[in-house]
Write a protein that binds this DNA or RNA. Structure first.
Lengths: 196, 196
DNA sequence: CGTCTATTTGAATGTACTCAAAAGCGGTGG
DNA sequence: CCACCGCTTTTGAGTACATTCAAATAGACG
């Protein structure tokens, strides 16, 4: 097994000496997930952050009515965890589930702390990852506040053209904050409009 | 003039030696703003990140119809900037305006880079600030997707009880993603409900 | 005091949801 | 290999949540 994918990802932001790579790898876990297997469930302590090597995952939470809200999808080269609970060592508020056979590399909270101490450049790496995650999330907030459901769906298709094929529509609906029924009518309207 | 407020804020996450404090202070700018004066306008290069010492600010952007969306409010002890544009040295997508007389400390993008190099613990500080900003923003996304306008208003009042008194209702409405008219009817319903 | 902006109110409208039922589709076991 | 089961998607009717527009009222500030 090789960790090229995660090392390439890291190298986009910091560069590691060979012995630093070895230290990093010594903290790295690996996990395979069958379709529908969960990486994390609500209430569990969120011990690790995962980097997707292969496959596709989805993070979601349940509201008081038992309805799912999709927080994010994660594909190869993405990092995923319940960040708040991972950082603060709290029980998870979300589920992370494999949409298909997937493999992930994992860093535990303690492992990451050791890396932060031994190799301060990991602070920089995570500063940049957090920055990107923050600005992406802020953009999502603004789009949720200002765009209609149909416009949000269009943006989603632009940003993640492949996702639309890989995941069920009801999960896209829950990412956009609309019902599957309404997403269906949006799609009907679009196909009607494009035929004319 | 003293920088106690910002040093106290930083000390919650990293500790600085006296000479490190001096280096930090040497990069620090200061700005006073009269009510309605802007710290940043759309299209301008976003050169600095600001820490609120006194007063109250609001970050907002305009959508294609010219409507405002409030991205965040900022009060003493808060950091505020157009993060995406600050980090990537791009023209700003938002406005940041003083709601009342305010003072802020500022770090420029170049100054921050120098701090990152000279004092790597600033990477840690910003990693933590970005983490907090990300998880806060993610929570806001989930609340926007799952809660009704009235529930979002209730949460807002719980989280920021003082804000509701300091800022005009139409700005709260634009933070919640609803019209000022509808916020007004929500408030009417609540006061009717609480009287019974 | 007058002006300007914010807030309230109400009627008409639009966007998105709920519920129910039918149709489609994929996987699994006989 | 096909029939069946369960889940997803579609469709439609009725409803609820939130907006638009217009007008009246209230507050803030010079």
């Amino acid at each position: 097994m090789t960790c090229d994918s995660i090392l390439t990802n890291i190298a986009r932001n910091i560069s590691l000496e060979p012995e630093e790579v070895r230290l990093f790898e010594s903290h790295l876990g690996f996990r395979e997930l069958r379709k529908k297997e969960t990486l994390l469930q609500e209430g569990q302590l969120c011990k690790a952050i995962s980097f997707v090597d292969q496959g596709a995952l989805r993070a979601y939470c349940l509201d008081k009515h038992g309805r799912e809200s999709t927080i994010m999808f994660a594909f190869p080269d993405w990092w995923v965890t319940d960040m708040y609970c991972f950082i603060n060592r709290k029980p998870a508020m979300m589920f992370i589930e494999a949409l298909e056979y997937s493999c992930v590399f994992q860093l535990t909270r303690d492992g990451l702390d050791e890396l932060f101490t031994a190799l301060p450049k990991f602070e920089k790496l995570f500063r940049i990852l957090m920055q990107n995650a923050y600005t992406r999330e802020q953009l999502r907030t603004i789009e949720n506040l200002t765009l209609t459901a149909e416009e949000r769906y269009d943006r989603f298709l632009e940003k993640y053209p492949k996702v639309a094929q890989q995941v069920p529509q009801k999960q896209i609906a829950s990412y956009l904050g609309i019902t599957p029924e309404f997403l269906s009518t949006i799609r009907k309207n679009k196909s009607r409009a494009s035929r004319s």
